[in-house]
Design a protein around this nucleic acid. Structure first.
Length: 577
RNA sequence: GGGCCUGUAGCUCAAUUGGUUAGAGCAGAGCGCUCAUAACGCUUUGGUUGGGGGUUCAAGUCCCUCCGGGCCUACCA
């Protein structure tokens, strides 16, 4: 048995996440965590909301609520959706927790003591109307290069020229439109990533089993131009973790908070501590996952994230961990995903474009989404969501192949033998052949899951479902029944055992469906199969079951067209910044 | 501008370190079955691997070039 620590990139707080967010970290991490648990490993599966930063403040302002209240509300909404999608986190935390305050301040103190933090005085744009400093992206104006009127302070979207906010003609606040902007002097702390560059590069170079998407992004940042740059880790904001050196005040940093990307990854650790608190355990319970001097030396740590998160997880967070001088657990494997595109464009929270988690569940149950998204997860390149593909994939794989198999087996059995696993007859060559075929596929499925190759794994799982229909077609219990009812009984016994096996091995992708099958078959537990031959002999004659309702309804063309129309434009109530 | 990724059948994707005749699923066509959600099974059509050039006994794979798509570029997160 191994111990596996799994973290999903933490979704930002300012609204309900879309399917692109879901498939890029939380969903694959859940499938992986469920699989590893099913295989008997000890798993700690962590997620949280990323609560700080200007977008949260602005979203709260738009909603007319204090930011802390707004975030508490949005956390509850995200937590609820997470549950309804079956995302089985051990803890779904919040980066604004007291645990994260303490840990973030602790790390900052350690880094300062190690000489890895320096103060930098810089000039930034301040908006008196908004009462805040404005990040470059929140300043709009006319591009001095091309004359585009909505250029942002960091770059003109129209001509792609990189800009300084002070270069903009007629600059204004993107938040309020205020034009009374001024430049003010302010001091910030910088994390001396440059001092750790060699150590990081050595570390990255030795991660030979990482996907190219991950290492190439990290190496680019390490080697590009003047190499890895130091990074500001504080901001002039109210909402965030106050800058402190451990528990001590930080002279000159009064009223400032840490930058979200400094405290967000630390929340992985803090959320595990929150888990210990929530379950009434002491610090040792979470330290054994995170401190190699407190029992974490045999933990394998895997992170899931979208490609946009890679620099922070390969560079800044490791600098925080390594630079602390304390034996915190460093990530062992990073699984990064590309983007899911929506009908040819991007999913967008800010533009309300695409399908959001709450809407998705109004349209189809969680397992349907889980299946399609994971079978098409953007592993090697961006992948496309279309309603046509969704309808086809779901109807074929879930309704026709898996759902219909369960339906035909249980209903035929009920008609001929009643709702009980038939006794009589014995398994013969057909069952041996089917078992062998399933074994081969099962081993391939396991290998793909171990390697986190989810598309491949979904393909193998599907192939195992198909083998059930193939077996049934060949064995034809309906034809055999009249002349040899005992033989027919054996076939159905084998087929019912197949359903039990499907429940166990499909659970990582389809947890709700697996539960339904388990209930229908009156099974106490779902045991991961060893050999197919053994697993398929477990349900003995005389065991009762109930024919379940059809597992998956087919998506009609009318439904598909209606959804396509409904989700073609902007989300009406999109309030996110 | 720079960097990285990517282009394979109508669609979505596979193809050990370069190694026989480039494979699956879906969609299409034909046949079979009648237990089942008009479902299932079997067979089958379909590719000058974006264009061009090069290296090699051998190129989807390596190199050059052109064309298309995507992402990142450090103050969005």
């Amino acid at each position: 048995m191994e111990r596996i620590l799994i973290t999903s990139a933490i979704p930002y707080i300012n609204g309900i996440k879309h399917l692109g967010n879901l498939v890029g970290s939380q969903l694959p991490s859940d499938v992986y965590a469920r699989y590893m648990r099913a295989r008997g490993h000890e798993v700690m599966h962590i997620c949280a909301t990323d609560a700080h930063g200007p977008p949260a403040e602005i979203a709260a302002q738009k909603a007319g609520k204090p930011v802390a209240a707004y975030c508490a509300e949005m956390w509850a909404v995200q937590k609820d959706l997470s549950d309804r999608f079956g995302l089985g986190f051990d803890h779904f935390g919040r980066s604004s927790s007291q645990r994260n305050h303490s840990l973030t301040q602790h790390f900052a103190g350690q880094l300062a003591a190690a000489g890895l933090i320096r103060a930098v005085s810089e000039r930034q744009v301040y908006s008196p109307t908004d009462g805040r400093f404005l990040p470059d992206r929140y300043i709009e104006g006319t591009c001095p290069n091309c004359g585009y009127e909505s250029a942002r302070g960091d770059q003109c979207e129209n001509c792609t020229k990189q800009l300084e906010p002070t270069e903009l003609i007629d600059p204004r606040s993107a938040i309020s439109g205020a034009t009374d902007l001024e430049v003010r002097e302010t001091t910030h702390l910088y994390l001396r990533q440059s001092a750790m560059a060699e150590r990081l590069e050595h570390w990255i170079q030795t991660r030979t089993d990482w996907p190219i998407l991950t290492t190439s992004i990290a190496l680019k940042w390490l080697r590009d131009g003047d190499g890895l740059q130091d990074r500001g880790i504080t901001r002039d904001l109210d909402w965030g973790i106050p800058v402190k050196k451990g528990t001590e005040p930080w002279p000159g940093m009064e009223g400032k908070v840490f930058y979200v990307w400094f405290d967000a990854p630390i929340e992985y650790i803090a959320a595990t501590a929150e888990w210990a608190d929530a379950t009434g355990q002491d610090d040792a319970a979470w330290l054994r996952w995170w401190r190699t001097d407190r029992g974490a030396e045999d933990v394998r740590y895997v992170q899931f994230m979208g490609k946009d998160n890679v620099p922070f997880h390969t560079l800044s967070f490791p600098v925080t961990i390594l630079g602390s001088g304390e034996p915190w657990k460093l990530v062992d494997y990073i699984k990064a995903f590309n983007y899911l595109t929506y009908q040819g464009g991007q999913f967008s929270t800010s533009q309300g474009r695409g399908v959001f988690m709450d809407q998705a569940l109004e349209v189809q149950p969680a397992d349907v989404w889980r299946w399609w998204l994971m079978a098409n997860v953007p592993e090697s390149s961006d992948s496309a969501f279309t309603w046509e593909a969704f309808q086809q994939g779901v109807n074929k794989d879930l309704s026709a192949v898996l759902g219909n198999f369960v339906s035909r087996v249980t209903k035929f059995c009920r008609a001929r033998f009643g709702e009980v696993v038939p006794e009589g007859g014995a398994y013969g060559p057909a069952e041996a052949e089917a078992s062998a075929a399933i074994d081969t596929r099962l081993r391939a499925y396991e290998a793909a899951m171990e390697a986190m190759e989810f598309r491949k794994a979904a393909g193998e799982l599907r192939a195992i479902w198909v083998l059930g229909n193939e077996y049934l077609q060949t064995a034809a219990p309906w034809a055999v029944f009249k002349a040899d009812p005992d033989r027919s009984a054996a076939i159905l016994r084998f087929a019912l055992n197949l359903i039990a096996l499907y429940a166990a091995i499909s659970a990582p992708f389809l947890p709700f469906t697996a539960q339904k099958l388990q209930t229908a078959l009156n099974l106490e537990t779902q045991r991961w199969p060893g050999t197919a031959a053994d697993a398929l002999a477990e349900l003995a004659g005389g065991h009762s079951f109930q024919v379940p309702d059809n597992l998956f309804a087919k998506i009609t063309d009318d439904e598909r067209d209606a959804w396509q129309a409904r989700f073609a434009g902007k989300r009406a109530e999109a309030g996110a910044a």
